[in-house]
Design a protein around this nucleic acid. Structure first.
Length: 360
DNA sequence: AACTTCGGCAACCGCCGTCAT
DNA sequence: GATGACGGCGGTTGCCGAAGT
């Protein structure tokens, strides 16, 4: 026989908290603490709430030193970096941001930051910002840029990255020539949603605008094994956004980088809870791991460690069911992590290779 | 002005590991 | 050891105000 039930589910109030309830909870906890027992707390405090609900309300809203409002650039950067390395482990990320709650960060990510990164935030910005000489956190090569790209206009930096603007007078084609080191979370940039490309239809096409730049490129999912065009000897990976031409359901950024050897893996949410197995959270965060002002923090070392763990864990227990090379596992994981949310959990992993997308 | 759509966010749901019985 | 609640977490929902038509 286990413990007694925590509360009478039928008699607990749900929904938004009233100011009176807030006051009661706050006063009680400030006087007596939680006592390490949330279930018993509401009754003692005279609240008709479930203990879980009280805990949530306290942690996310009432407890002291909660920070509300705008996230700073530095906070953006920390969130992005950690998300890129450990995924949606909001509680760990929140631990690095004093005053922020996991719920807050999660909401911020889902509603703003993700869009910001994926280039949806500023439709007027017609430019892509991609790191040129930037050393990716996960890049183990100093000899090549993870991304080669062309854009007709100068790129604009996004505050979270601190990267310098960049420009090239080249066609509106974005190329990735070393996907092994490509981190999609580094693909921050406001190209504007009307400017995204994807290879996903059944026919390849490219419509040119009057200035000769390519304004739309599309490749068929059915022909996914067909390589996107190479320019200047660089293999292209391409992007297309259905949104502008179809419907809102496609507004979300599509990421899909499956294996190309017919692995036919099926992405099943239940196979992976978005956690990267093998990562020791405590180890990750202990030893003062954090962010220093000069950007050369101990965290960078920790990220390398995380990277290795990701690499190792991806071999068999991460649920990706991918048979691509280990060097691509990180990329796969990141993209799939994105796709698990961005593709509305339609997780069929076709036997195709990749689709990628961007132009400006 | 009325209606619809969108976006932000608080809160709930359900899963999972831990712990009490 | 088995059972089932607790605590914590991430994903999702639904409300509500803002923006758009």
């Amino acid at each position: 026989m286990g413990r007694a039930p925590c509360c009478d589910k039928a008699n607990v109030k749900k929904g938004p908290w009233s100011p009176e309830e807030d006051a009661k909870l706050k006063e009680f906890i400030e006087k007596f603490g939680t006592g390490g027992n949330w279930i018993a707390l509401p009754q003692k405090a005279g609240l008709k709430r479930c203990g879980k609900s009280c805990r949530l309300r306290w942690l996310n809203y009432l407890r002291p030193n909660i920070k509300h409002g705008e996230f700073s650039d530095e906070e953006d950067r920390i969130i992005c970096t950690l998300y890129a390395s450990i995924g949606s482990r909001w509680s760990i990320i929140a631990a690095q941001l004093p005053g922020r709650t996991d719920n807050d960060i999660k909401n911020y990510w889902n509603t703003k930051l993700k869009k910001k990164l994926m280039g949806f935030i500023n439709p007027l910005d017609q430019r892509i910002k991609l790191p040129h000489h930037h050393q990716y956190p996960f890049s183990n090569s100093s000899s090549s840029n993870a991304i080669q790209y062309f854009t007709t206009s100068s790129a604009k930096s996004l505050s979270t990255t601190g990267l310098e603007p960049f420009s090239l007078d080249q066609p509106n084609m974005l190329l990735f020539n070393n996907l092994d080191n490509f981190n999609p979370m580094q693909l921050y940039y406001p190209s504007g949603k009307d400017n995204m490309l994807m290879f996903g239809g059944t026919e390849a096409s490219c419509s040119n605008s009057s200035d000769g730049s390519c304004s739309q490129i599309s490749y068929g999912r059915d022909q996914i094994k067909q390589e996107p065009p190479a320019i200047n000897g660089l293999q292209g990976y391409n992007i297309y956004d259905h949104h502008h031409h179809h419907h809102q359901e496609n507004q979300k950024f599509v990421l899909d980088y499956g294996n190309d050897n017919g692995g036919g893996g099926t992405w099943n949410k239940n196979n992976n809870n978005n956690h990267i197995k093998g990562i020791d959270d405590e180890k990750l965060l202990q030893n003062g791991a954090g962010f220093s002002s000069n950007g050369t923090s101990q965290l960078e070392y920790e990220l390398e460690e995380v990277k290795q763990l990701i690499s190792c864990s991806s071999a068999g227990n991460n649920g990706f069911n991918s048979s691509s090379s280990s060097s691509s596992n990180l990329l796969n994981m990141m993209m799939m992590r994105s796709s698990i949310t961005d593709e509305n959990k339609t997780n069929e992993r076709g036997a195709g290779s990749s689709m990628y997308y961007y132009y400006s």
